[in-house]
């Protein structure tokens, strides 16, 4: 019985070999390469491919993240995209980068515009280009945005950090440049008709932060980011089912569907002002509180002036 089977198998093998030679000769291959072809172990090849695919996956997204979740590999891959956005798309002019201290820590305070944190990304990218050797500049993001599905993994990987006092202090103690937006939600959610009008600056958190950590406080004005997604009005009932605070209605979104989410190519200017002097802080607690609210307002007015100046002097929105 088993001899029969062996014989059948051998015949089958011989037939297969003949077939292989036949195919080789018909499709231009020489029959001399027959031996070579026959020695390929397809299982080995498949194993090797699978192994490489796995290794590729790990090497490509190293996953080696820092303590706030920034990923070197993802960042390196995102650099050309950010360069494109900065140089070609929004043609960002950065004024006053020399006003930044040579080393961190440093708190940059900027006006917030638009729902997506393009402004934070552009400011940190500009700093990163000017000071490539420094620890990665980090931008602070409101909680609702950083906990949004799909946003959270990517924002953290490119250097976004949830805006909180603890996080900011930790970053500053590690010598990072930290980009803060004290307007918070009020700044991100304002309508197009309120553009470039700075909202109230929280409860003086940035001043307190600078006082306690000794980090210099640098005002930054971003002009052009308001036109990226001009929010005409907010749809609130629809938003509730998605767990969003509201759904912005822009001239293109949701009219054009996902394509309407593309940012418009306005011309941007990022102005970096002189560090704010925090004189007289750290004395009497009661006086400090009054001084903090005065300094906060001063800071807000300073940025407002820089923004107004930028809006007035630009030739047009599209530059």
């Amino acid at each position: 019985m088993s001899e029969d089977r062996d014989q059948t198998l051998q015949e089958l093998d011989a037939a297969l070999d003949d077939l292989r030679v036949e195919i080789r000769s018909r499709f231009g291959g020489s029959a001399g390469r027959e031996e070579e072809t026959a020695s390929i172990d397809w299982f080995e090849v498949f194993e090797e491919l699978r192994r490489r695919a796995n290794a590729f996956g790990i090497a490509e997204r190293s996953g080696e993240v820092d303590e706030f979740g920034a990923d070197e590999v993802v960042l390196a891959r995102a650099q050309p995209v950010f360069d494109f956005l900065q140089d070609r798309y929004w043609r960002v002019d950065v004024d006053g980068i020399e006003n930044l201290p040579d080393e961190g820590p440093c708190v940059l305070v900027a006006n917030r515009s638009g729902l997506l944190p393009y402004d934070g990304i552009m400011i940190s990218h500009a700093i990163h280009r000017a000071h490539p050797a420094h620890p990665l500049p980090r931008f602070l993001v409101a909680d609702w945005l950083i906990t949004l599905p799909f946003m959270q993994p990517y924002l953290a990987r490119i250097g976004g950090v949830r805006a909180s006092r603890d996080n900011a202090e930790r970053l500053l103690s590690r010598g990072h440049f930290v980009v803060a937006f004290p307007e918070g939600m009020k700044g991100a959610a304002k309508l197009f008709r309120d553009r470039y009008r700075l909202q109230r600056f929280g409860r003086g958190g940035v001043i307190r932060l600078a006082r306690d950590t000794g980090a210099p406080l640098v005002p930054v004005a971003v002009v052009g980011a308001e036109e990226v997604h001009p929010v005409l009005f907010k749809a609130e009932t629809m938003a509730r089912s998605f767990g969003l605070p509201f759904v912005p209605v822009t001239p293109t979104f949701p009219l054009l569907g996902p394509a309407g989410l593309l940012p418009l190519p306005s011309k941007w200017t990022i102005r970096i002002g002189k560090p704010l002097a925090l004189d007289g802080l750290g004395g009497d607690a009661v006086e400090d509180e009054l001084l903090i609210s005065r300094l906060t307002e001063e800071l807000r007015r300073e940025i407002q002036t820089m923004v107004d100046d930028g809006v007035k002097t630009r030739p047009s929105v599209w530059g």
């Binding site: 996956g57 790990i58 997204r61 190293s62 996953g63 993240v65 303590e67 979740g69 990923d71």
Partner: peptide, 14 residues
Amino acid sequence: KGVWPLSTLLRLAG
């Protein structure tokens, strides 16, 4: 010490 994203951990474990 150290924090790791869940996706990376799962990939490490295959």
